[in-house]
Simulated assay, not measured.
Amino acid sequence: MSKKTPLTRAVTMKDVARHAGVSRTAVSLVLNDRFDVTLASETRERVMSAAAELGYRPNAGARALAQQRSDWYGLVTEIVTAPFAVDVIKGAQDRAMADEKYLLIASTESDPVAESAAIERLLEQRVEGLIYAATWHRGVTVPDVAREVPTVLVNCFDIEGRFPAVVPDERAGGHRATSRLLEAGHRRVGFINLDRGIPAAIGRREGYLAALEEAGIAPDAELEVTGHATADSGFTAAEELLDLAEPPTAIFCANDRMAMGAYDAIKERGMRIPEDVAVIGFDNQELIAGYLRPSLTTVALPFEQMGAMGVDLLAAITAGESTGTNTVTVDCPLLERSSV
């Protein structure tokens, strides 16, 4: 029977002190970046050299206890593998690392019990603050335990109004999409919206109506159709619009999946995009918008920017700045492709 290789013992400050021929106190002062105590530069160099030779790594847990800070933020989200969640994580992680902070990420799979447990585990790791991110914009109820540290919500808002939040500017995005179609000369602009009541549907519709009003165009109820966020519903809604006695010459779809369905409805009638009907989507789902033919002009949801802004807010709060519980909106840019 082969012998098991024993685990290598972690190198301690005592080991570094012995190797460098200095006191443990000197090692602690050097490795904890204490410059308020005078030490000879030669001593500092010997300690750093010995630590490198021995492969010393600081005990993060002990240091967090001593300094009452860990340099870690916790990020809690429903599904870390969802494309949009990945973008939030990237934005947050890049901004955190620029400030020499790091993220501990926990996936909760939309399970309230798992959510509370994940936050508890992150708090056990002494994270300095939490980012609570959702995969779609909505009101949420955040577990009470999150109040133990600064917490910022991303792509969602606390129904009880206890936490600051970063969300997309849905209204501005809807306005930008509709204005682009109006600028292209269209006067009858159809709108396929999401299910009523959700923040995205409300905001994008407000932007659509505001753009029409600014252009001096009266809203036409016939040109507004509710879809259900799927390609099939987009197809059905587009058919309804195209069956009108005076059909629209442009369609703003409140997400890219519905725009994909609208493409099929338009093409089945032998019509061309954008020559006969222009189409704009929303979300910038790259596997849809970039690969439809013609490629889809769409409004992008600013996930990376929201993740970065969430870290900015969290850093401000942990630094003692007062941000209140306000909701910050992030602009949704228009990505021009070939469908207008």
Rank of each mutant, 00 (worst) to 15 (best):
D312H: 00
P143T: 06
R63I: 13
R272E: 14
E53F: 01
V140Y: 02
N155R: 03
L65Q: 05
N193I: 01
E183I: 02
E115F: 10
I79V: 15
V225H: 06
P112H: 08
L194V: 09
Q305C: 03
I159C: 01
P143Y: 06
A259C: 11
I217E: 11
A218N: 10
K267T: 15
L212R: 08
L244G: 11
I159L: 13
V279P: 04
A52F: 01
C253W: 03
A184S: 09
A60F: 04
D276I: 07
D264F: 01
T327Q: 14
I317R: 15
D256C: 07
W72P: 01
C156H: 06
Y132A: 02
A98E: 15
A262L: 08
L182E: 10
G139M: 06
I131V: 11
D195K: 03
A200L: 07
D276A: 02
I280G: 09
S116D: 12
T151S: 15
V225N: 06
G61S: 14
S116L: 05
L123R: 01
F235Y: 15
G261I: 08
A20G: 10
E128K: 00
A315Y: 02
A254N: 12
G207T: 08
E240N: 02
I317H: 06
L244Q: 07
R162A: 10
A17P: 11
G55W: 09
Y102G: 12
I131H: 00
V166W: 02
K101V: 10
E120R: 06
E275C: 12
E304Y: 09
D312L: 00
P302C: 08
Y208S: 11
F157W: 14
S179G: 05
A165P: 13
Y291T: 12
A250W: 06
Q68P: 02
A66E: 06
F35E: 15
R269T: 11
V189H: 04
N59W: 01
G207E: 12
R176V: 15
I119L: 06
I131D: 01
T135F: 04
V154F: 06
P143C: 08
S2G: 02
A172N: 07
T318Y: 03
L212Q: 11
R171V: 04
H137E: 13
A254S: 15
V279S: 02
T5E: 13
R147I: 07
N284F: 10
A64K: 03
P6W: 07
A300T: 10
L130C: 13
A20N: 12
